[in-house]
């Protein structure tokens, strides 16, 4: 075999071994394997009662849900502004209009019935430190009705941003998308408005920190720092990856999780598509250049060897 190719082969093999050691192998050692997400929520019991949406609307008022949650779609505004709500509950209870567009049906029923259990936060909350949302003591029929109702009002096709807002925004900032835990950061008319907004934000964040015992990170760059698979598995079951974490299992469907990830990608890696498209052309350019360079080299070296 040609000597130059032999040298090249040796280099490729040595670099390959080193690469394998410091990347795939080292990472598999540093990040222990966990089962990939299935989104089946198999630890939860299915609700085998058929619900009725019309009765659900009554049940939801009778059971006090609207005392904490707004349901804009049904004309129930949020009972408190986010900052006051966070001072009371630690976090702003999400508006329930589109909750069924992102949360799994079985999970939803289980969460309403016993939120701490469904969210996998039994290590954080107890009778002495109760969870802000009370458990549901009504009948299974009422529960099924509520779920049916929430499903009936939820938009069938929500945008990726809406999915993020419903599922994650109450805890996480997303500043590269101009989103804060209080919602979209408005345009300020003057410095007073800005200062007021920032004061409210600081208050909310302090309450949140007090409630969760830690500050949930801004998710703007998480698509690059954690990657899609990690986020997917983490959202499905945070405890599986960060044992004892304060982040609840929010019980998203697989489709909704993909939407959230898509959104994080639009925010944190917005040039991905462009990068992948341009890459092909640049590589093609250098392939052609290499061929031409080879021909030129041959031409020049003809004289000397």
């Amino acid at each position: 075999m040609n000597r130059e190719l032999k040298i090249l082969a040796i280099i490729v093999i040595l670099v390959g071994i080193t690469y394998w050691g410091i990347e795939p192998y080292a990472h598999s050692v540093m990040h222990p394997h966990h089962e990939p997400a299935t989104f089946k929520y198999e630890d939860l019991k299915p609700l085998n009662v058929k619900g009725d949406a019309a009765r659900g609307k009554e049940a939801i008022v009778n059971n006090g849900c609207t005392g904490c949650h707004g349901i804009e779609a049904a004309g129930f505004p949020a009972p408190m502004d986010p900052v006051t709500a966070s001072a009371t509950y630690g976090v702003n209870p999400p508006d329930l209009s589109n909750i069924a567009s992102v949360v799994d049906r079985k999970f939803l029923a289980n969460f309403i019935k016993n939120p701490v259990h469904a969210a996998l936060l039994e290590h954080k909350f107890s009778d002495s430190k109760p969870y802000p949302m009370p458990a549901f003591y009504g009948s299974d029929q009422d529960l099924a009705d509520i779920v049916a109702y929430l499903e009936s009002i939820a938009k069938k096709d929500i945008s990726t941003r809406e999915a993020y807002e419903v599922a994650c925004m109450r805890c996480h900032n997303l500043k590269y998308d101009n989103l804060t835990v209080l919602g979209e950061k408005p345009k300020f008319k003057n410095d007073v408005e800005r200062a007021e907004f920032e004061l409210n934000l600081a208050k909310y964040e302090a309450n949140l920190q007090n409630y969760l015992g830690t500050t949930p990170p801004d998710l703007s760059m998480y698509i690059r720092s954690r990657g899609p698979e990690y986020i997917r598995d983490f959202v499905e079951n945070p405890q599986k990856i960060l044992h004892g974490t304060a982040m609840p299992r929010v019980g998203l469907t697989e489709a909704a999780t993909e939407k959230v990830i898509k959104h994080l990608e639009k925010v944190g890696d917005r040039k991905k598509e462009k990068r992948e498209r341009l890459g092909v052309w640049v590589l093609l350019y250098f392939v052609i250049l290499s061929v031409l360079a080879y021909l030129w080299k041959k031409e020049i070296w003809k004289e000397v060897i």
């Binding site: 990068r275 992948e276 341009l278 890459g279 640049v282 590589l283 250098f286 392939v287 250049l289 290499s290 360079a293 080879y294 030129w296 080299k297 020049i300 070296w301």
Partner: peptide, 20 residues
């Protein structure tokens, strides 16, 4: 002329890493 060829081939490898 030879180096130019080697650099061109190296650039394929390099830009593959840059993009992907």
């Amino acid at each position: 002329s030879k180096d130019f060829f080697v650099v061109s081939v190296f650039m394929i490898f390099y830009f593959y890493l840059v993009f992907y």
